[in-house]
């Protein structure tokens, strides 16, 4: 089960894509940067999940995918657990909740944002680069297509892995450089397939009239509504409360 756009009808889905992205960034910062305690972090995670359920976000693929990052959770948890010298289970749990929080929030953003919404978000984010001659819309398209093809490439990687294993390859032996070396038969064909796919896609886009320098119109138009302003208000309020809590 892959995390991908899953349409539904709720206020969260109808948010302006830029506000959606900004909100995601805000929650990610809330999980990763702020100095919250274990209870506060756990509460934030539960609240994020409850809000997602309330706004009809399909959480199952996101929660199932947490399993895929268990090694990262374990490693970071152990390192954080021993960060003060003696083993501290609270530090371990804090680190694990922080990572799960960032993962779930990013997953929710991908689930509620269609390609045109993602593109709009990146385009608005890259807009200041226009001053330096970068074309924000083209850069945004590159980002979005990369995201769109990630599951396809992962599927390809899995197929190659199985094909290599059927011929007796083993990918999980050795440590350090040896481990990296054992992954080469997997990475090189995947990379070459990704390049072939990219060439095919470029050709297909050109055949559909895409040209970097040419003027394009937009099918989806996004406006700012009451709920967008409300979400911005909540974000500003939270930042203000956090700053006040640190100062006093």
């Amino acid at each position: 089960m892959q995390i991908t756009y899953s349409p539904a009808d709720s206020a969260l889905y109808r948010l302006n894509p830029f506000i959606k992205g900004l909100g995601t960034l805000f929650i990610i910062l809330l999980f990763s940067v702020t100095m919250q305690g274990l209870f506060s972090l756990f509460f934030s995670l539960v609240l994020t999940i409850l809000l997602a359920i309330l706004f009809k976000v399909e959480l199952k693929p996101i929660l199932i995918s947490i399993e895929k990052i268990w090694l990262l959770l374990l490693l970071v948890g152990i390192i954080q657990g021993f960060s003060t010298g003696n083993f501290n289970p609270e530090s371990l749990l804090i680190a694990v909740i922080r990572i799960i929080g960032v993962f779930v929030t990013s997953g929710i953003f991908v689930t509620i944002s269609s390609q045109s919404e993602l593109m709009y978000f990146w385009e608005q984010s890259f807009r200041p680069l226009n001053l330096f001659g970068f074309q924000a819309r083209e850069l945004a398209l590159v980002m979005v297509i990369s995201v769109r093809f990630l599951p396809v490439i992962l599927g390809e990687l899995d197929r190659i892995r199985m094909a290599q294993m059927a011929r007796g390859a083993r990918f999980s032996h050795g440590v350090g450089l040896k481990a990296v070396k054992s992954l080469m038969p997997l990475l090189i064909p995947t990379l070459s397939l990704a390049i072939i796919r990219a060439e095919d896609l470029a050709l297909a886009m050109e055949a559909r009239g895409y040209c970097v320098s040419r003027q394009r119109t937009r099918y989806n138009h996004f406006s700012i509504g009451f709920f967008d302003i409300f979400v911005c208000g909540i974000m500003l309020g939270t930042i203000l409360a956090y700053v006040l809590q640190i100062r006093f």
Binding site: Q115, S116, D200, A207, G209, T217, Y219, H221
Partner: peptide
Amino acid sequence: IIFQNPDNQIVGTTVEEDIAFGLENLALPR
């Protein structure tokens, strides 16, 4: 032109967005 593998030519994440891609390139009004 429609190529052999559909997966290599679909740009959008939804059906509607993918169909609209070519029309956006033609700079047509919404």
